[in-house]
Design a protein around this nucleic acid. Structure first.
Lengths: 259, 259
DNA sequence: ATTGTTTGGTTGTCTATACAAGTTGATAGA
DNA sequence: TCTATCAACTTGTATAGACAACCAAACAAT
């Protein structure tokens, strides 16, 4: 009848419990997952709470529900996490590779006009430009050229960005709360700087990701252009069940105007 | 106390109603959206149902909830759909461009070993290979090389694939229900065939998307390799609010082994 | 043997209620 | 004036109960 939410919600704890079970391989691929009623009994909560927890697992592709039949574990465990935002370090360590990073540049500058435009900055606002090279096992894999609003970045400006995740630091030391991120992926040919930094031939096709990150209030907080060695790193995405989406291509496209 | 679900659930109807309102611009960007209680009154349903409807709008990026404050319309309407799976034709027409397609090849073949492997086919199973060139305003933009299991594709084999969406046809004429899709994006250099078909110079960097599409039972239904003119087409994705995800990179990565 | 029918289990939808947690603005007190 | 508290709102979480839609397997009737 009444309840007492300690710090984190029940449905989230249950979600974590169930996730741990799945990860530990307590169920085989395609196996039946406990029904709502069973889970209600074993966790001693209401059905709504259970469904909330299970919904998370479904959204993340671990489970599938089929009306009248039951809930089932999905196949292909390998890519099961790929929908999620994972940090570079984590990805690398999953492959048994030591990730590292080197700051090539960290400067407060007046933004170039194109940067000013995409970040919707006022005329006098300054930005921090950070160029960082990320390695996997000492081999350079990614060049990150990021632009942050100095106003929001100041509190962590002097911290060690080589060892820490910038977002982690921001989250802990500022009140900035991040909102949406938008990425655009293009292909490009290696130029002089990519040739030197990534150690690839001139003209090698590379992946270029342009990222826009907004704060919760809708202002742009970061813009970055990251260049990936495409022979070593690719992007993968998983898409949820089609259902309504039966037309379609897997990924959202964006068309360039050519003039 | 009791209810009668006619054909489609209430929450879905409400979702459609609200979506229509938003689309018609009844609310400005950043405006406050009606609160749960207000919606409960105007639609005369319970709060749970309202929240279900609103959740859909949130998942699709139209709204944001903030505890204690309210629900708000999101900014930048332009990209608000970009999270979604949109068909090529639709994207093009949004830009006022006439999309068309030409079948270059349609054949039943014995799959090459690598195809057999990625699609997890049995030894004697045949596949349909379709090579299709997609145009925007008569300019070639994409080469699609798709492989379908012949077994599942047969019912629509003789239909007009130039005018229709393959998935649309499948959905209507077969019992095949699609499950998950997985994409991998790489960069590549234009070779002879891309040079000819896409009308770009040899060595031009292009985007290569490898797509795996599963049926609901987990079997692989389609594998395709699509080549995009990267000067005209890019991929974009939007990511939901960060929250738990404060480490991180925008997009899931995948690492290649280099041996 | 084949065809209906029933039964029990499953997910899907909906209602009604309750309280927690966070925000905002008004009000009372220093 | 400034500050603290309070009240009224918001969304977030949780419970309990009900019935619909669907599925599979057991059962009955033909």
């Amino acid at each position: 009848m009444n309840y007492q939410p300690p710090l984190i919600p029940k449905y989230y704890q249950i979600y974590e419990d169930l996730l741990a079970m799945i990860r530990q391989g307590e169920f085989g691929e395609g196996d039946r997952f406990p029904s709502d009623t069973e889970l209600v009994k074993s966790f001693n909560v209401s059905r709504g709470t259970i469904r909330e927890a299970v919904k998370l697992l479904i959204q993340q592709g671990f489970l599938v529900r089929e009306q009248g039949k039951g809930t089932f574990i999905t196949y292909q465990k390998i890519t099961q996490d790929s929908y999620k935002l994972i940090g570079f370090t984590e990805v690398m360590s999953q492959h048994g590779i030591k990730a590292s990073a080197k700051i090539i540049e960290k400067k407060i500058i007046d933004p170039a006009p194109n940067i000013k435009q995409v970040m919707q900055l006022t005329d006098d606002e300054k930005v921090v430009r950070i160029i960082r090279l990320r390695y996997g096992d000492k081999e350079p894999l990614i060049i990150e050229r990021s632009f942050f609003r100095y106003k929001l970045f100041r509190p962590i400006y002097d911290m060690d960005l080589e060892k820490n995740s910038i977002f982690e630091l921001l989250y802990r030391h500022t009140t900035t709360r991040l909102g949406y991120a938008m990425q655009r992926i293009e292909a490009m040919a290696a130029g002089q700087s990519e040739h030197k930094l990534l150690n690839v031939d001139l003209g090698t096709p590379l992946l270029l990701m342009k990222r826009f990150i907004q704060a919760k209030d809708g202002t742009y907080f970061q813009y970055s252009e990251d260049v990936y060695r495409s022979d070593r790193i690719t992007f993968t995405t998983r898409t949820l069940p089609y259902e309504d989406q039966h037309d379609s291509h897997g990924l959202p496209l964006d068309l360039m105007k050519n003039e």
